[in-house]
């Protein structure tokens, strides 16, 4: 099904091409920020849901995956994120900056899931064994290469710092974009990133030592 969404009070223009797609590298995107003023244009065109999905699926999926640390859960939450976005999109203002908005939904959806996961309680069952709770952190002994160490270090970080660091490094967001996505002040972004780098470094180094440099 190829559904087309026409934003409120705008004309449907099938010839227009969408803008504001993630560019190839993080740096490239930060550099290209000047062009992002054109993103206003994006919603004045018809976006097909499938088009949006295809453009954003990989960065959003990876962002969520790094936030929650499980591919299975990332599947679920990516699905939730896009469905929430699709439902809300027809009601959104024409000035919407699609990518920051999608990341915001992804962030909130992932935070919800992380919060929920903490609430899962495993009750004792008389005389019967029961499965252990889902342990979030990975075993350092299982980490083999650098990217696994990076994943494991991310997983050990406080989630807000993790989100800020991912948005800055992986997604190439500016401080202003991070502030808008995480719904915090720009000065807060400075603090988040500072603590995030500190936290990442600590966990990464300790994992590297614990893993015995199995690279």
């Amino acid at each position: 099904m190829d559904l087309t969404v026409v934003p409120v009070a705008t004309e449907y223009d099938p010839a227009s091409e969408p803008a504001d797609l993630p560019s190839e590298t993080a740096k490239g995107r930060r550099m290209a920020k000047a062009e992002s003023a054109q993103s206003v244009q994006s919603l004045q065109q018809a976006w097909s849901f499938e088009r949006i999905y295809d453009e954003f699926k990989t960065p959003i999926y990876n962002y969520i995956y790094h936030l929650v640390g499980s591919r299975e859960q990332a599947d679920d939450l990516t699905q939730d994120t896009f469905l929430k976005a699709f439902r809300a999109l027809p009601r959104m203002d024409a000035n919407l900056k699609l990518s920051a908005w999608l990341y915001r939904i992804a962030t909130n959806t992932s935070y919800d899931a992380l919060r929920r996961r903490k609430l899962i309680a495993w009750m004792p069952w008389q005389d019967l064994d029961h499965e252990p709770a889902d342990v979030e952190s990975a075993d350092p002994q299982e980490t083999i290469g650098t990217s696994e160490l990076v994943h494991a270090a991310l997983r050990r970080m406080p989630r807000h710092y993790r989100a800020a660091l991912l948005l800055y490094t992986q997604e190439g967001f500016s401080y202003a974009e991070i502030a808008s996505t995480l719904n915090i002040a720009e000065s807060g972004v400075k603090m988040y990133l500072s603590r995030a780098r500190h936290s990442f470094r600590e966990h990464y180094n300790s994992l590297e030592q614990a893993g015995g440099g199995k690279k």
């Binding site: 599947d75 990516t78 990442f200």
Partner: peptide, 30 residues
């Protein structure tokens, strides 16, 4: 460390995920 994070190879979501979304009841309802 920034570089490590920036160059972390992205994971491609599976084709099933696309199917799950666009063939979901929620999407059909929408």
């Amino acid at each position: 460390n920034d570089q490590l994070l920036t160059t972390l190879a992205p994971i491609e979501p599976s084709d099933q995920l696309r199917q799950r979304i666009f063939e979901s009841p929620a999407f059909a309802a929408l």
